[in-house]
Design a protein around this nucleic acid. Sequence first.
DNA 1: ATTATCTATAGATCTATAGATAATGC
DNA 2: ATTATCTATAGATCTATAGATAATGC
Lengths: 238, 238
Amino acid sequence: MTLVMATDTPAERPQPKRSRKERREDSIEQILDAAEYLFSKHGIYGVTLKDVAQRVGVHTSLMHYYFADKQALFVEVFERRATVTRARRIEALDAYERACDGRPTVEGALHAFLDTDLDLYISGGEGWRNWGALGGQLSNTDYGAELMDKHFDPVVMRLIDLLKRAMPDMAEEDIFWGYHFVTGSLLLTLARTGRIDKLSNGLCHSDDFEAVKARMARFMAAGFREFAATSGAKGVEG
Amino acid sequence: MTLVMATDTPAERPQPKRSRKERREDSIEQILDAAEYLFSKHGIYGVTLKDVAQRVGVHTSLMHYYFADKQALFVEVFERRATVTRARRIEALDAYERACDGRPTVEGALHAFLDTDLDLYISGGEGWRNWGALGGQLSNTDYGAELMDKHFDPVVMRLIDLLKRAMPDMAEEDIFWGYHFVTGSLLLTLARTGRIDKLSNGLCHSDDFEAVKARMARFMAAGFREFAATSGAKGVEG
DNA sequence: ATTATCTATAGATCTATAGATAATGC
DNA sequence: ATTATCTATAGATCTATAGATAATGC
């Protein structure tokens, strides 16, 4: 997939004969991958363009040849995958809406919202997992929150809409706070800090997205049901 | 509390006549407060010592007079309040254990764990809220995760222990994952990103810790109960 | 006499640009 | 002839230290 990888298997490619366009795209992809990895580890200010260049194995000035400045590189790293997962999730929520026959459930909506994303980290390769970790950092940060808002507000509103229809009697505040809890849990999951590994003495692993997928929608749906059972409702009876 | 605040009310203090020791402590406190605020906004690498000094209104070199280097300042900012909340939470969990008469409940344990912390942000003033936001960032970061582990592992293990006793039949993995969800939600709460404000069109506020306190333990306890109801148990029947 | 704060500055590093060289494509 | 990559370097900024000055305490 990358030049580095290709070099690891020289037998297969005697003379790749890649066109300029291909080389260009490869270079850009390598830079984005390296930046993605480093940004996810140290944040935007914790990484220098030299760090990125060294990881790729090229000169720092090449960063400026392909990207206007550091900020532009960062935004591109974020947006490269943000657009993908946003589209997938909207599609999944649309599909769920069509399938649920006008009667969405909380758990169904959460599965569409969460599982579609988790699948990317499960089978999307290391790049996706790095990007996820970056997102986990971003959300808790001032400069990152804007980027998140910009890209994911439509998806979230789509989910909120389904949740409201699944729980028409619930106070809106409760729906928003429930969503807040869901996001927080998801973002910490994406961050893969290794904390749960240590706490559980190796029983659980913070990169075990399958384990999260198997539990999260159910856990959170139960939380919402608890709100429905005990909290002040809208005053309208379904 | 700080020199700046004191200067705001000149009538009360004609000639403070503060001793060297008092001045020294005031200066250190001001530096820590300024650093805390800035680190919480931009992370450790997003803040320069000059930024901190300018916020206090002194020269950059004074940072080095009081702190060995930038890293030491950062650690001090974190530890100043970490030790306080850790002690309070352990105390609260101990008190709950004594009060529950050997029969802890999930919700009771979560209330002791969460509310004690949330109370600090509700009534501890802006410094505490800034520190909380810093913690929210740290946890999703590599360099911060270590600091968190070091200070909060004892508290968390204390909570886990109570949860296990409240749900003796539950698979350990489920307890750890449930705790993971709880922490994620708490950390995003502390980050106060303003996201929920925008999403809810002003209905909810990300600095409304009271709202979280009123909902979180209940929401999460219901999640744990869901695990108890449907997930693979330990194989032992209570 | 001691402590707190500031001035001046060294040395390192970082972003960004200009211009040279190497590689590809017509 | 055009594009990709590198060399060299300017200019800014950042951390850290040495040493001067101002303020307090005995």
